[in-house]
């Protein structure tokens, strides 16, 4: 009897080995890393309840951490900062020969993304970070003039990035940014659509899946996002954990020479970042029977069948 079973088993295992495409097909080499980092402290607004102290350190330290991970020669980062009372920025960036002011107005951000379209390749990694206010899936960018907050739809931002070549990761540290995460045709977020009937209706709804090279990682799903003080320095709770995940030491302002703690088997992926942040952020991700009170903040990532590699080591 065992002889009878051995032959089909051997055939199956051998055929599977032969079909393991990953072992035989050549892998592409990673290209350059481009980053647009946007941060606002909203201190140009008269209502000081809107002021944020952690956003600008968040963006500046992410900028340094990404540069260290990519290597200075392979990294191009552009900070778009609104700081203090000012509603303008004297700094400019040159992207593909175009001069773009570093004040984070919708026009300047769109100009930067549009300029990236002509210089990136499929092998490049494009990062966009936002630290500031948001509500219901709209981020609050700086005004073109005056001091009123302008909200900007995340979906519009994603549309712009969809025509930029390369892998894209959009990182949003702001309230309710989970609403800005695009819906996947085949799967549903259990944080926002926790219903069996929704999951089955997606199976039959006829919407086709495509391989996405645009991932969105947010600090929260449908709740507020918070700042806190870490060893005397103010940061977003999410970004503080993200910086640690990248191997950045916030206390010393230096990058660890070791492989980032969120990397597994020499690869730092979007899911790896999310897992590390959920496990290490100072706020809990959900209320429980034993901890029913207090603030929660549940990071979220776009759905789909694939996880995306950011850096290899």
């Amino acid at each position: 009897m065992m002889k009878n079973a051995f032959l089909p088993l051997a055939i199956i295992l051998l055929s599977l080995l032969l079909f393991s495409c990953e072992l035989f097909m050549e892998e592409p080499q990673a290209g350059k890393v481009y980053a647009i980092l946007v941060a606002l402290d909203y201190k140009h607004l008269t209502d000081n309840r809107n002021h944020l102290d952690g956003t600008i350190p968040d963006a500046k330290e992410q900028h340094k951490a990404f540069a260290a991970l990519a290597g200075d020669e392979k990294y191009e980062g552009y900070l778009f900062i609104q700081e203090g009372d000012s509603v303008e920025n004297s700094t400019t960036h040159t992207i593909d020969g175009k001069t773009i002011n570093a004040y984070p107005s919708p026009d300047n951000i769109e100009a930067a993304i549009t300029a990236l379209k002509s210089i990136t390749t499929e092998e490049d990694l494009i990062l966009f970070t936002f630290s500031g206010h948001a509500k219901g899936g709209n981020i609050a960018l700086a005004p073109k003039s005056g001091s009123v907050i302008e909200t900007y739809e995340v979906s519009r931002l994603l549309d712009l990035f969809s025509s930029v070549k390369g892998r894209k990761l959009i990182i949003l540290d702001a309230c309710e940014t989970g609403y800005g995460v695009p819906s996947d045709p085949a799967s549903s977020s259990t944080l926002l659509e926790n219903s069996i009937s929704t999951w089955y209706s997606k199976y039959f709804n006829g919407e086709r899946s495509v391989k996405s090279d645009l991932f969105v990682l947010t600090s929260s799903a449908n709740t507020d996002s918070y700042e806190d003080i870490f060893n005397g320095k103010r940061h977003g709770v999410f970004t503080y954990a993200l910086l640690k995940a990248l191997g950045w030491n916030v206390d010393t302002g230096t990058m660890s020479t070791a492989i980032p703690p969120a990397a597994k088997r020499g690869r730092l992926t979007v899911d790896g970042l999310l897992s590390y942040i959920k496990a290490h952020q100072t706020l809990k991700t959900k209320k429980s029977l034993f901890k029913p009170f207090g603030d929660i903040q549940h990071p979220m990532v776009s759905g789909g069948a694939l996880d995306m590699t950011l850096f290899t080591f």
Binding site: N4, P8, S188, L191, I196, D271, M300, G303, G304
Partner: peptide, 23 residues
């Protein structure tokens, strides 16, 4: 019902199998 590990995302699916059983 399938739950992607660590990313709070779920999807429904169907399965069918054919096989042999050896006592």
């Amino acid at each position: 019902i399938n739950f992607y590990r660590g990313v709070d995302s779920a999807f429904a699916s169907f399965s069918t199998a054919l096989g042999a059983e050896f006592l």
